[in-house]
């Protein structure tokens, strides 16, 4: 008991330190200089209506490339842990099947979830949303499929091909910028187009579509690994 009190006091001290630090940054006052610059010049420089998209993909595109590779490393780590080090598998009791209503309903809903995710990541440079959000919505659609039809498998070869092609698109579009006169990685070399229409902002929509496919296939792979560890492999001992 005294241990818990001591650690609660420790957490309180950290909170007091945070409060003292953030006393210099009042809530809702000024923005940073860099943010102001991006807001003033972002539309003219990138052509995207959504400034968050232009920060994620254009000003900090290299950061996003690293983040996507961290995601790939985590997905590969889950797959390796479950399929190569699968020690001492647990026995599974019989899982009850979902009933008729859930199966038919999920079969009707699943294409609409795919359509919704695709809409979100195609319109990423115009409206809120983008590759990460759309990809995770598509992956949750796959999760619904797994829950309503236990024992399904996704085609893992197809998933890896989609994921590899999406990553390759990102890297190739980035490297292409090195051959333009500016000599910079991830340079926006395509024409900007008319502001606030679907075909605009140069390479940003293409990159966001690639990120959407990549995030969707990676999260679907993670869900596939974990669900199949429980359902498919438990049965076939």
């Amino acid at each position: 008991m005294i241990r818990k009190i001591v650690y609660a006091i420790f957490a309180a001290i950290i909170v007091i330190a945070l409060v003292m630090f953030f006393a210099a940054y009042p809530f809702g006052a000024n923005k940073m200089a860099v943010g102001t610059y991006y807001l003033n010049h972002g539309v003219a420089q990138t052509g995207a209506a959504n400034i968050v998209t232009s920060v994620v993909l254009d000003y900090r595109g290299f950061d996003t490339l690293g983040e996507v590779s961290v995601l790939f490393a985590a997905a590969a780590g889950v797959a390796i842990l479950f399929f190569m080090l699968g020690i001492g598998k647990k026995e599974r009791e019989n899982l009850t099947k979902p009933n008729f209503v859930v199966r038919v309903g999920s079969r009707i809903i699943f294409p609409f979830i795919l359509l919704f995710g695709t809409y979100i990541f195609v319109h990423g440079h115009l409206t809120p949303g983008g590759g990460f959000q759309g990809g995770s919505i598509i992956a949750s659609g796959f999760l619904l499929l797994y829950l309503s039809y236990p024992g399904t498998r996704v085609n893992r070869g197809g998933l890896s091909i989609i994921e590899g092609l999406a990553g390759l698109t990102f890297v190739v579009l980035g490297l292409w910028g090195l051959f333009t006169p500016t000599d910079s990685f991830l340079y926006n070399f395509l024409p900007k187009g008319l502001f606030n229409t679907l075909v605009s902002a140069g390479i940003l929509p293409i990159i966001y579509i690639a990120i959407g496919f990549k995030v969707a296939s990676e999260f679907a792979g993670i869900v596939d690994d974990m669900m199949c560890e429980v359902i498919c492999r438990g049965g076939e001992k």
Binding site: P98, N99, V101, V102, G105, S106, I108, I109, F112
Partner: peptide, 16 residues
């Protein structure tokens, strides 16, 4: 339409 389709299905699965 999406609400009309999903809410009864979800509650039937929960109830079961």
């Amino acid at each position: 339409l999406f609400i009309l389709l999903t809410a009864p299905i979800g509650s039937s699965a929960l109830m079961r």
